[in-house]
Design a protein around this nucleic acid. Structure first.
Lengths: 218, 218
DNA sequence: TAGATTGTTAATCGATTAACAATC
DNA sequence: TAGATTGTTAATCGATTAACAATC
């Protein structure tokens, strides 16, 4: 019910800002702050205060109090619950090369509700090894092992030539969400969630902004 | 002039889609296609055809031709020029750990107009080594070496505790654009371009979509 | 009480999409 | 010619921001 509302009515833009609020609030919590005003959050994070209040109102159980602001602990708990940080899901990693190893080695994902339980690679020299404490299996076992482990999330960190095939194997195994770090557009069934981590897109936006800044310069 | 128009009038959303068009067109070019219709691009990339035409019209020198579509080679050249892919810029990398090494090792950045010329790290065991063919210098030399190399772009791949300090050093050295992979909000002067590669935000969006899909399931 | 801060309603802004005439 | 495809104008959609009354 409340859950239903959550799933439908919170925009992607808002969801994307929640992790930043979460980090900020954790920091304030560590500094011993008990309450925080939307105006303070907005200023520090370079956002609009109305936007902050609107975002928070969508996911929080308790309203802010005039003059005092929001309760830091409650807000953190609300975001934890909304984003599933308190409810870790298993994921598999396909591709145990440089980027894949870096992702597996980054311990922080557990704080974001993600637990990598297995890795896959097609390179025989990598199979049987361990990256970031995760065992690397033969890529040919992807579908069957994913099914056996009942995993719903796959992280794709393979070279672009291998990406579509790896994605198909994940879906064949029952994965429903793919976090794609390969620079390719994947063709997948409609009911599969895909999030492309498009570095080229980010870089394009950054370098255009840089060009603008430099042009204003002198 | 044309340049001025480019810097001001093309939206971030459009810029973000251009790399995907570029990849797609390169693929078609490799397959020997000479022309392509916006309708075909839209279908394959799951976009709206009007949006594709609007995006392309903003950056292309030549219009598409009714019935035939757009010239593939020209479109690629237009995007190359617009995004600066034909005009490689130097960048430095701060943080030569797992993610930093993976970024340095990914040779593909040169295709996107980026050339990593030096890396920095605070860990003595990494200083003096090489990651992805790039020499790792002492992080304390960041500002001075960046200035000497006259680099304008910095890639930040350090642990979050070190991120603000590393960013400050980059700016002190004259960097004007920071590609930030650390999960922190950086406080920087206004005239510095920052692009946060916020993995937590991506993951949040993906897992919410997953939750929605699973809830529709049965 | 006065003032800081809230939540909500309305206005604005920007991006996407629909409709359609032009044309190769 | 007929039809596929274009570019542009207008409508829609969604997200951000401004205005303001409510309240601790």
């Amino acid at each position: 019910m409340g859950n239903n509302k959550e799933l439908t009515s919170v925009s992607k833009a808002t969801i994307g800002r929640l992790p930043a609020y979460h980090r900020y609030l954790k920091e304030k919590q560590a500094q011993g702050e008990r309450t925080i005003a939307s105006t303070a959050i907005a200023e520090d994070l370079h956002l609009n205060a109305v936007q902050v209040r609107k975002d928070l109102s969508l996911i929080s159980t308790t309203a802010g109090k005039p003059k005092r602001g929001f309760d830091v602990d409650e807000l953190i708990a609300d975001i934890d619950r909304f984003l599933g940080y308190d409810n870790v899901s298993d994921a598999v990693l396909v591709g145990a090369g440089g980027l894949g190893s870096a992702l597996a080695g980054y311990g922080g994902f557990k704080n974001y509700g993600l637990n990598i339980v297995a890795a896959f690679d097609a390179d025989p020299s990598r199979i049987g090894r361990t990256v970031g404490g995760v065992h690397v299996f033969d890529a040919r076992e992807t579908a069957s092992l994913v099914r056996r482990l009942n995993v719903r999330i796959g992280i794709l960190a393979v070279p672009k030539e291998a990406a579509q095939g790896a994605a198909d194997a994940l879906v064949a195994g029952g994965v429903r969400a793919i976090w794609n770090f390969a620079p390719v557009h994947l063709s997948l069934p409609e009911n599969i969630a895909v999030k492309n981590e498009d570095m080229a897109a980010s870089l394009a936006i950054l370098s255009k902004r840089l060009a603008e800044i430099l042009s204003h310069e002198k």
